[in-house]
Nucleic acid binder design. Structure first.
Lengths: 202, 202
DNA sequence: GTCGCCGTTGACAACCTGTCAACGACGGGG
DNA sequence: CCCCGTCGTTGACAGGTTGTCAACGGCGAC
C-alpha cells in the first residue's frame, strides 16, 4: 500500500468515498457480483481493504451504492410533455427513454450487467425508480389512482419497467433488436397496457 | 456425518445426485444464492461436503442444475391450439400460462426467487426456454421467420418472456396483481406485440 | 475368497469477509 | 511554538467458504 508519493495519502472523506465508489463501479461493470472481491476494490482504489469497509460497511452495500448511482440517470423529462393525444404522449415518452439510453450507453450497459447479478435489494432500487416515473406518467395522463387501482398500477408499471429494461438490453448489449424495433415494440405494448388499465379502472 | 443406521450409506450414483439436488433446490428456494453454502447443502443431504463437489463440480453448477430443473416446467401445450383467430390463440395461450403457474405455484415461486439472484448463465436457461415456446407459437401462427426477422423475433420474445415472468411475480409473490389483471395485461400487450411484429415483417 | 471399482470422506490450502486496536497526519488550543 | 485530540488509514486477526486430494471401505465380478 505504498501510495503515490506525489499524492497525499490522506484525503477528504467524501472524496475518498467517491473515489472508492467509482473504482468499485468500474469493477462491477465488468464482472458479476461474486467475482469481485473487496481486495480487488481496495487494490483498484490504491487503498487498504478495511477502508472500503469503513466507508460502506459490507460488500453488498458497496454494490448497492454502485447500482444506485448508476440507476440514477437523468429522469425522463416528463414535464416537457404538454397535454396532447395519449398516443403522442406514449410515443414521446418511449422516444425520450431510448434517446436517454443511447446518450448514456456506457452507464446503461453498466447497469444492465450489474442488475443481472442482483437480488431483492437491487429490485427494490429499480422498482422505486419505476414507480416514480410511472406516477409522473399517470399524473400526466390524468389518471385518478387510489386504493386497489394504485397497487395494481404499481404492479403493472414495475413489470413493464422490467420489460422496457429487457428490451433495451436486447438492443444495447445483445444486439438482436434495432432501435426502431425497440421503439415500435414499446410504443405498441405501452399503449395497449395503458388502454387496458384505463378501461378497467373506469 | 453419522448417517441413519437403517439406511445404507452407499447409494446408487444417480439417486444420490438426485437427492442432493433436491435438497439444494429446497435451500435455494428459501435463501438467495450467496446465503446458501456448500456446507448447508451437504448437511441438508446428510452427506460430506466433498461429495457435493464430486457430483456437481462447483457451487454455481449446483445452483444452475437447480434452476434448470425448476425452469423445466411442463411446457404449455401449444399443440392443443387449433387454428383459430389470432386473438383467440393469444387468449388461450395466456390462460394456459397462468393456469400452469397456479397449478405449479410452489415451483414457480421457487423459480422466481432463484432467478432473482441469477447472472448471465441463469438468463441463458430462461432464454432458451423462451425461444422454444416462442418458436412453437410462431409456427402455430404461421409466421415465416428467417434471417434478420428471426433474430428480431427472438429478441422480442426474450424480452416478453421476462415481462411475463415479472407479471407473474407481481401476482404470485408480490400480490399487487390479481389473476384477472395479469390476464388482461398479458393479452393486451402480447396481442399488440404480435400485431406489431407481423406488420413490420410483411 | 480375493480383487478392483467407485461411492464416500477427513484433512488441507487458498481465499474472502468483517472487525479491532493502533498508527500518524492535520488543525486548533494553550 | 508545542502539545493534543480528531479522524483518515492500516496491519493483523478470527471465522467461514470454496475447491482439491489422497485414502478408506463396501459391493459386485471373476
Amino acid at each position: 500500500m505504498a501510495g503515490v508519493p506525489g499524492q497525499p495519502r490522506r484525503m477528504v472523506a467524501l472524496d475518498r468515498r467517491e473515489q472508492i465508489l467509482s473504482c468499485a463501479t468500474r469493477l462491477f461493470e465488468s464482472k458479476p457480483y461474486d467475482e469481485v472481491s473487496m481486495t480487488d476494490i481496495a487494490a483498484a482504489a490504491g487503498v487498504a481493504r478495511p477502508l472500503v469497509h469503513h466507508y460502506f460497511g459490507t460488500k453488498r452495500e458497496v454494490f448497492l451504492a454502485a447500482v444506485h448511482r448508476v440507476a440514477d440517470l437523468p429522469p425522463l423529462a416528463l414535464a416537457e410533455l404538454s397535454a396532447s393525444t395519449l398516443s403522442e404522449s406514449v410515443e414521446t415518452i418511449v422516444d425520450h427513454f431510448l434517446t436517454a439510453i443511447s446518450r448514456h450507453q456506457p452507464l446503461w450497459t453498466a447497469m444492465l450487467t450489474m442488475t443481472t447479478s442482483g437480488g431483492d435489494d437491487v429490485r427494490a432500487i429499480l422498482r422505486q425508480s419505476d414507480e416514480t416515473t410511472a406516477d409522473a406518467l399517470a399524473q400526466l395522463l390524468g389518471f385518478q389512482l387510489e386504493g386497489a387501482p394504485l397497487a395494481t398500477y404499481h404492479g403493472a408499471s414495475a413489470a413493464f419497467g422490467s420489460f422496457a429494461r429487457e428490451v433495451a438490453r436486447e438492443w444495447v448489449v445483445e444486439g438482436r433488436l434495432q432501435r426502431e424495433d425497440c421503439y415500435r415494440l414499446l410504443v405498441a405494448t405501452l399503449s395497449a397496457a395503458i388502454d387496458q388499465l384505463a378501461t378497467t379502472a373506469s
